[in-house]
Structures are given as C-alpha cells and as structure tokens.
Nucleic acid binder design. Structure first.
Lengths: 223, 223, 223, 223
DNA sequence: CATGAATGAGCGTTCATTCAT
DNA sequence: CATGAATGAACGCTCATTCAT
C-alpha cells in the first residue's frame, strides 16, 4: 500500500495536516478540477503557507491520491455498518444500495472528482484506487450473491449486477445537477431499488418479501 | 449557441480544418487527457503548423468544446436511424438501448473524455453540452414514454429511467477495462435489456412480447 | 556523442542561438558560478525571452555541457594548427605547451569553470567531457612521446608528464589572480618550458637544441 | 579575520558544535557538492536538530567557510612538523613536497571541494581563504628560497616555483580518478620530485646530493 | 492563408532561514 | 540551549498564445 511518506515525525500532526489538505483539495478539485488547482491554493485554503504542504505530501499527485482514497475509505466504512442493522438478505441488499446512495449524496463533489481525475494518477496509484473500489464493490456483491444462492434473485452475473448498482448510485452524483431538481435522494434510491427488485426477484423472492422489513416498503410505496 | 468564431472566410476550409483539429484532438485527449495535450501536438497531428490552429479556433477550450460536441453529435445521428428499422414500441426501446450501447462501444475513449473533461469547459459551454446530451436522451425518452402510454411499462419516471438507461450504456465505457474481460458487448447489452424489461414490463407488456421481433429474443436467450 | 536535441529546425538559427547562449552562460557561470546563475539571466543576457532558451536546450545542464564542450573544442582546434608551424620534435613540444597556455589565457573564466562545475554534470556527460579532454591531452602526449623515442627526453611516464604540462598550463587560469600581478603570459610560458626542458632533456636532447628554432631561445633567455 | 559570529556564550560548546558541523559538512560537500547539500542534512549528520545549526553559524556560507578553512589549517599544521625530521635544505624541499602530497592524498575530497566551491564564498571570505593558502605556500617557498641561496637551485622565481609544486601536488587530487589507476602515491611523489630536481638543481646542487639522505634516493631510484 | 520562432505568465517544488515552544 | 514545524522567496521548466515574415 503506497502510503504517502513525510519528513515530519508527529503522527497526530501529520493526521491533522493531511485532513486539512484533503479537505481543502477536495473542495478545490471539485470546483475547479485537479489541473486547474494550484498547490499554493490548496495550502492557502488549508490555512498554511505554500511551502508547508510539501512536509506532508511529496507531490501534487499525492494530494489527489489522498483525496480519492479518502472518498473510498468513506464508502468502505459506512456500508458495512449499515448492513448490521437488518437481518434478511433481501433487506441487506436494499440497505447496501441505500447506504451507497447516501454516501454518494454526502460526497457528490468527491465522487465526480473520482470520475474526472483517476487518469491523472500514476498507473500504480490508479491500480491501488481500483483495488479499493473493488473492496467496496465486494460489499454489495456479497449481498447479491446471497440473494441468488437463497433463490431470491435470478441467476444474473454477480459482478455485473454489482457494477450496475454502483453505477446507478454514482449517477446521483454524475447527474446531480438534473436529478436534484426533480426528486429527493429518498425517491431516487427507492426508484433504483424498485428497478432492481422488479428486475431481479424470482417468484420465491417475491414471496419472501413478507419476511423483510425494508424491501417490502418499496413495493408498498409504489402504489 | 456559442459557435466558435474565427477570422477566416472560406467556410469550406474552416470546416475541413476543424475536422482535422477535432480528429487529432479527440485521439490525443483520449489517450493523454485534455490537460496533458499541447496545442502544438494537436496542430502537428492535424497536419499543419503550430500557429495555424489559432485561425480556426480561438482558445484551447474551443478545441475541447468542438471535440465534445462532435461526440454527442455522433449519438444524435446514429440512434434515430436505428429506430427506423423496427416497428413495435418495445422493440424500439430495445433498439434504442442497443444502438446507444453500440455507439458507446465505438467511442469508448471519447465517452470517457466527456466524463473527464466537461469541468474544463466554461460554464456556458458546459451548459450547451448538457443541452445536447439532453437531446440525445430525448430519443430514448420517447421510446420509454410510448411504452408507458401503451401500458407496456410500469408508470415510472420517464426522464429518470432514461438517465438510467444512458448511464448503464455509458458504463460499458466507464468500466470497459473490467467488463471487456468478462463479456462481449452483445452480452452486456442483452443483460441491460434484461434488467430493464424485467424491471419495467407490466403484465400487458409481457403479453405483448409475442408481437415483437427483438425484445422476445432477450427472454428466450435467458433460459 | 550526446548532442543536445532541439525542437527547432533551422540549423543556422540553432547555431546562432546556441552561440548566444554559450557566450552568455560562460560569462555568467564564470562570474557567479553555475548554481548561482538563473536560466532567466542567461536568456536575458543572450538577448531573448526566458522561455526561448528551452527551444535550443533541454535543461540547464545542457547549457553547462555546451559551455564546457565549447571550451575544450577550442583547445582541440588551436593546438593542432600551431603544431604545423614548426619542424623539430622538441620545438613541437614547446609550441604545444605554448599554444596550450595561450588558449588557457584566452579562456581563463571558462577554464576555471571547468574545474568548478564538471561535478554538476550527469555521469554520462562528465564522461564525455573527460573523453574530449583526453583528446586534447593526446596532442601534447604525442609530442612527448616523439621526444622520448628520439632520445631527446628521459624515459618518463608519457601520460603523467602530459598531465603535468596541462596542469601547469591550467595553473595560469587557476592562480591567475596572483600570477598576472607578477609576470606576463610569455614569461610564465617560458618558465614552464624551462622547467620541463631542464627536467626532461637528455644529453642528446641538449645537443639537439641547436637544430631547433624555438626551444633554444628558452635557454638563451635564461641568462 | 572574518571569524563567524554567534549568539552563544559557552566557548567550549561552540567549538564542539562547530567541529561536528565541519565534519558533517566536509563529508557531505565532498560527496554531493556545496549546492547539493542541505542545511538540514548537515544538521542531521552532525547529530542535532535542523534549527540548532543557526546558533553556531549564521548562514550556509559560514559553513562552507569553516570547512574550507579547516582543510587549509590541516596543511598548515602537518607540513611544518614534517620539515623538522630532516636536515639538509634539499631534503627539506623534498620532504615539504612529499608531505604536501601526503596531505593531499588524505584529503582528496576536501581538496577537490576547495577547487569547486571557493566561488561560492563572498569576495571577502574568498580573500581570506587565499591568504591562508598563501601561508601554506610560504612553507614550501622557504625551502625553495634556501636552496637557491645556497646555490643548489637555479635562480628561478621563488613564488612561481612554489605554485608549481603546490599545483602538481594538488593534481594528485584533481586527476585522482586517473592517476590512481596508474601509480601509487609514492611513485607519483617521486616523479614530481624527479622533475623538480632535474629542472632546478645546479651543478653545485647535484654535487651536494651526497650529503642528503632523502633527495639522493630519488636519483638512485631512477635507474 | 500559412509558418514557426518568440513571448511571458504561471506552476510545482526546494530550501535557507525563522520562531514558537 | 534545543527542537522541528513553518515561512516564503526563488528557480527550472512548460505551454497557450502572438506576430513578423
């Protein structure tokens, strides 16, 4: 894991400064693009002088990497927690999707940034980010797999379905400027779940809805 | 419509030069990113001297705009033609989706470029591009609308569904590096259609499948 | 031979610009040191804008290389010509030494620069410069060798003696600030020749002085 | 004499710290050049924090000055001691030369450093260093002078001859990369002495060789 | 119309030096 | 006395844009 190295000792300070940097950079990269943002701007916005940033980061690319990694870490932290709150496998799938959408909503700028700027990373760094994304995906993929095994879902390609779920969650960020005008996040999430449940549930799956707490509300809301 | 202005008279020449520029720039932006590409490189690859490009384009941003516009124009040209080849509304929907995926497949680099570089455009230009995308979407939206009106599809939000279709088509480009390893474009397309048909068809819609030529093959292939 | 590459076509212009650059840089490096001199300063002194220099040179190190190479080329051009003007082998040795001293005198700054800045070159470049120096040395070494073969000089180590000759010629530059106060270049040269002739001539060599035109004046001047 | 000033009182500590600094800096400057070495690196290698160095030195140039001065002090300490070991004036000359070469050999990096970096000193500091070098030279010059007075050497320019001796001793450092491949320090020293004795001894001087212990071995070794 | 040399603002990065603790 | 985080000026280099020919 290529963690960025530093000439500073105090681990707490490093953490604090890095957070300042990531926060400032995320905002700036989000509103102006990676290439359009200056290291000086980042430093200034982070609240310190232009030279100091190089004590906590070795190159501008490091900053981008930290920002991107930070976003994905967010996903990897929040989704598993949410999964603990429900029991039924179909519910787990729904909650995973919902949580994913929630995290996207909290990180719209950052999510857009990931789509725009991954190419600006070195191949190694890019690979690392993709590896992290893969971890996140596994969380969703696990839910899909369970539902298929139990016979609730059709025998679709697990990883492809996962990608589609993730993609549509990301769409909330990618087309945010348009979607927000028409609906709330809750409505959007419900719609996606509706599409996937209708598209994937087997007859057995539909029958099992009664045992769910979350999934069944999707169908109830439809009427 | 912010058409790029120049000081050159001969409209035919302008057209020819612009095409050279767009072709060169699309290739370069695709493989190296917008910011990583030099005006000199574009000129050289287009086959003329480094100064000449400024007779046909005022800024580098103009080039990006032209490139992006060109990509979307491609979509707007190909999809309608394909729609003429089938009759039934469900088939039209399917063909629209399929064609969309085909065009994405032929323009993977360019599609990625659009996701990466729209932020490098001025707000006005960005708005214009988004307007053009909207036109493309209408082509799909029309199909969805018809299917709903005829009772074949559930009463879902038309524009949202359209966005989802487009998003999943784009995913073929966005996750190309992964998807291509696992399946062919045809399989991918079929999978998407399968998801949407399962997710959207009403009982009436399912019944109508017998009258379709294209859509019914999706269900047949599933077994 | 690692010749510096360029993005400019016109060979004559390249030559002209490079000469401007080398001239400006030699002066600047001479009076302020390599590291103390700015690329902007070099450009300005060469008479053009700060960016242009990079059309004719790829890095600052290139400039240093060009400067150093230019000095040594001077040696390699002048010494051979001078050798043609006399016949006798002892005379040839003397003229080689004298010419060497003359060239040093015309390039005092540059010679100092070579001593100061060779370490700032990349290893490959440094090797190339040393190779060129070796060529120059060969010119002197040839003279020494001939004199030994003919029995005029003692059987000393040829290459060592050559280094000593070169070193003492360079000394005129290295200690110029002091030596110039005490003597003229001619006196200095004569003194060196005196040292070497006294130190190297065999009895046969001394006897042969009568057949020389240049060498014998050294001994005559001594009285 | 521009002694470096500080704000610290305890003279002993100053001395100790300065020695640490000089030792560290000499090593670093020698292997990486003055400009390539960081104040941080020096401090670290000297064994203390990066800020502390400024309590014992006011600028980076101070460090260079201290380093250079230290080198020359070494010469001024070692040569006189060696001179006490022999009696005859010609021997004293020879021992001076030999000792000089020995000291050069022990300080090759440092000697090179002096040639490379004197220009990085302010004019005043440079003058001071040159003054110190002059002192060292006097040690050799005294020997030459005595030999001339006693009629052992020809009536050559004393200071010039001294410079030549010093120069050829320094050459052992300056061309070390080449000379070391071909001969030992002892051989090199002998060769220089041979050159000077052959070049300077009068008939009286040659006759006096019998009374020497060191000088006569040079001639004996030649055969 | 076309060329390509020239311009100069701006960026990422380094490092001597300072200063709060 | 000592630490090491912080500052900010400066440098090498790039490249969009201009302009003389």
């Amino acid at each position: 894991m290529s963690v960025v190295m530093t000439s500073i000792e105090d681990q707490e300070l490093i953490q604090k400064r890095r957070e300042q940097i990531v926060k400032a950079a995320t905002e700036l990269f989000g509103s102006k693009s990676y290439n359009g943002t200056t290291m000086k701007e980042i430093s200034k916005r982070a609240g310190f002088s232009s030279g100091l940033i190089y004590f906590y980061v070795k190159t501008k690319e490091d900053v981008l990497f930290l920002v991107l990694k930070n976003i994905i870490d967010g996903y990897n932290k929040e989704v598993p927690n949410a999964l603990l709150t429900v029991e039924h496998d179909i519910d787990k799938f729904c909650v995973a999707v919902k949580t994913y959408c929630d995290v996207v909503d909290k990180n719209i700028q950052a999510t857009l940034l990931a789509y725009r700027s991954t190419k600006d990373l070195s191949p190694e760094r890019r690979a690392e980010i993709m590896e992290l994304e893969h971890e996140t995906n596994s969380l969703v993929a696990g839910c899909v797999e369970n539902c298929i095994e139990k016979g609730f879902f059709r025998g679709v390609d697990i990883s492809l379905t996962t990608y589609q779920v993730v993609m549509l969650a990301h769409e909330w960020a990618l087309k945010s400027w348009h979607l927000r005008k028409k609906m709330s996040l809750a409505e959007y999430t419900e719609n996606i779940l509706s599409l996937f449940l209708h598209g994937l549930l087997t007859d057995a799956g539909r029958a099992a809805l009664n045992n769910t707490t979350f999934a069944k509300t999707i169908f109830e809301n439809e009427k």
